[in-house]
């Protein structure tokens, strides 16, 4: 590993770095002042999404949802209402009549969670409740494809809602079909690894964080489950704004990605470190900050742990590998990741 200048090593809290063994890279740290520890490190965390849910082993989305909502709960003094699009997150948490949610939570249709959340926000406003805050959440399918119209409308009206998208790159609970957030070359049930350009096509799909930025809403951020300090800080910061806000969290899916359940955090970390998953923030349409890559790794290190990319690493598909490398390079330049 390369040695780096210690002054740039603490992307999450931007404090003057003192050396605390694992600094702010682990969830907690007994050597760190309490105020710098994460919500997840405390025994008082709200466990908004609790044990007994039916997500697969090593589910990144279950983890991302607890991280984000617990942080929002702390930021709002436990005054949160969440609306949830249809998708994995809804299915695995609420098989009738059980619920794994310990917060006020409502299930919407697949495509209208943004509208439902906008309605809740409007109702709170008409009741004169200014302290209860609204979160809408869904997977990438419910967000980038099916719910995109409602979401764009919510951004347009600048409704006071934080929308959180847990992006695992496909429709996973229905059998791993492609969504518009599926990365190029990835194998899904509908983009099989056949032909000259196996897997999902290059030059297709959409990247919602930059679309959200184009709406010039108050706050847009991307986050990853491997960097908890960074993720919690972004959620807490989002709660300081009024109006429409959007956070896009990258969540590995062992089932859809063909990866080991034990590697969920590792893959989310490697996705960021290779440049394919940029972490940044934007306010009012302007990029304001980006989380630097700590130790850059080649994209193939990341790809080889996922069976959905197995064909990319075959000798006759080097053109795909080169194209994926180019995406990483482009992200690094575009979001200033080094």
């Amino acid at each position: 590993m390369n040695k780096q200048d210690t002054s740039t090593l603490n992307p999450s809290d931007r404090q003057t770095v003192k050396f605390y063994q694992t600094g702010t890279f682990t969830v907690g740290n007994r050597l760190l002042d309490e105020e710098f520890r994460t919500v997840q490190a405390t025994t008082e965390r709200s466990n908004s999404l609790d044990s007994g849910h039916r997500a697969c082993q090593g589910c990144g989305q279950a983890l991302g949802a607890r991280y984000a909502l617990d942080a929002a709960m702390r930021a709002t003094d436990n005054k949160i209402i969440a609306a949830n699009a249809t998708g994995c997150l809804e299915v695995f948490t609420t098989p009738y009549p059980e619920t794994a949610w310990s917060i006020p939570w409502v299930h919407s249709l697949f495509g209208n969670v943004a509208a439902v959340a906008s309605g809740i926000a409007a109702a709170l406003k008409s009741k004169g409740d200014t302290t209860t805050r609204v979160i809408a959440q869904g997977g990438d399918g419910g967000t980038t494809d099916i719910g995109f119209g409602c979401l764009s409308g919510m951004f347009d009206r600048n409704d006071d809602v934080l929308y959180i998208c847990y992006d695992n790159g496909g429709y996973m609970n229905t059998g791993v079909q492609r969504s518009s957030a599926t990365p190029p070359a990835a194998r899904t049930a509908t983009t099989m690894p056949v032909g000259d350009n196996p897997g999902s096509s290059f030059n297709t799909g959409k990247y919602l964080p930059t679309i959200a930025m184009a709406h010039e809403i108050p706050y847009v951020a991307t986050a990853s489950v491997h960097d908890l300090h960074d993720l919690e800080r972004k959620v807490e910061k989002a709660m300081t704004f009024r109006g429409a806000r959007y956070i896009h969290i990258n969540v590995p899916c062992p089932l859809g990605w063909g990866s080991q359940p034990a590697f969920t955090i590792k893959l989310s970390r490697m996705g960021v470190e290779c440049g394919l998953v940029p972490l940044f923030e934007a306010e009012n349409g302007q990029l304001t900050d980006s989380t630097k890559i700590r130790y850059r790794i080649p994209v193939e290190e990341y790809l080889k742990l996922q069976r959905r990319f197995a064909h990319v690493l075959k000798p006759h598909n080097t053109h795909q590998l080169d194209a994926i490398r180019a995406i990483a390079e482009s992200n690094i330049k575009r979001f200033n990741l080094l």
Binding site: V27, G28, N29, T38, G60, L63
Partner: peptide, 9 residues
Amino acid sequence: CDNCYGICP
């Protein structure tokens, strides 16, 4: 370091 406690889905 609380990692296990934090990252358990």
